[in-house]
Design a protein around this nucleic acid. Structure first.
Lengths: 171, 171
DNA sequence: ACAAGAAAGTCTCATATGAGACCGAATAAG
DNA sequence: CTTATTCGGTCTCATATGAGACTTTCTTGT
């Protein structure tokens, strides 16, 4: 029962039939399975990073995003990450205080702040990303090369169509 | 920028190349994409359920799980859901207070409590699950029938191998 | 040029959550 | 039998988070 925060939650040793009983019984099987897999990918990794480097979730994700999208604004980050603007604002302030990013007011629109990694931020990122990569590799280890290609193709397609899902108010 | 909590975060209207710039740049592309997709599936739906029915995340998920696994204990739920035991305990207490579940001490081991849906719990579940189903359908709408089969097969495989990922302490 | 409205980001408050200490029940060992 | 240990569950405390009010800046229409 999760004796330790860094311990991966352990599944009882059970056959695939029982696993099917766990995962196959919902009325939202695909979403449920994605959630299940992602939980076991993300939670242990993120908890460890939080504990080890003193970062919060939004802070971790902002550093991740800045690594390939420097100069992004908080609002842009909200749009594609789904985080709330208050959380992003808090995280950006905290990251700046820790000297991991710089916030530069956009000269063209002084409401906006563009975010940039500092050397320290890049360094910190490079110290925690290997764990995430390793865990992704562990997650994908059971798939063959062509299965991984399939999976990535399907995920790309799903991701590309996210904007078409319709607003939540239609739910 | 998320003006409303029930509003789905809106992506700027951008071509697939830009989307690739958002999603393809990480060092953990598969995990990142799964997270991206799941965020946009889960957050709006769950926020709506939270607001509309006064439930917390763990409460929502417990009701979901009980719907196909009645009599589960809190510890079992922790194991396959990845939730923390304190959260599950709190949620179970709250759900019982709302008469949505019953907690029955296991006669064989009086430490354990088995959880069962009440009629009210079943009813509440049936009122919020359609929204989740609808959103899953929207998510999958861009895939063909055979692509969905592919996806489910890959997810089943990934889910079945979760226990092999190794403990987080190896990260 | 001015007023009205939208947008970016910050702040505040209440609540949810994570971590781990704690308690009582069950099991194992001597 | 008695004691130590593990295990299911609860409690407490500090922190993170969600929601939305608020401030300032930009945009639009007249």
């Amino acid at each position: 029962m999760r004796p330790n925060k860094l311990e991966q939650p352990i599944l009882p040793d059970q056959g695939e039939d029982d696993l099917r009983a766990i995962l196959g019984g919902t009325e939202i099987p695909t979403a449920y399975k994605i959630g299940y897999i992602l939980n076991f990918y993300r939670e242990p990794s993120f908890r460890r990073i939080e504990a080890e480097f003193g970062l919060t979730r939004p802070e971790i994700v902002i550093l991740l995003a800045l690594h390939f999208r420097e100069g992004i604004t908080a609002a842009e980050f909200c749009e594609f990450s789904g985080h709330l603007k208050a959380g992003v604002s808090r995280a950006a302030i905290a990251l700046e205080k820790k000297d991991l990013i710089r916030r530069v007011t956009d000269p063209a629109d002084s409401r906006r702040q563009r975010l940039f990694l500092t050397d320290a931020g890049r360094d910190l990122y490079s110290r925690y990303v290997p764990a995430l990569k390793a865990r992704e590799a562990a997650m994908l280890a059971c798939l063959s090369g062509s299965e991984r290609k399939q999976l990535d193709r399907l995920l790309d397609k799903l991701a590309a169509h996210v904007p078409d899902w319709g607003s939540a108010s239609e739910l």
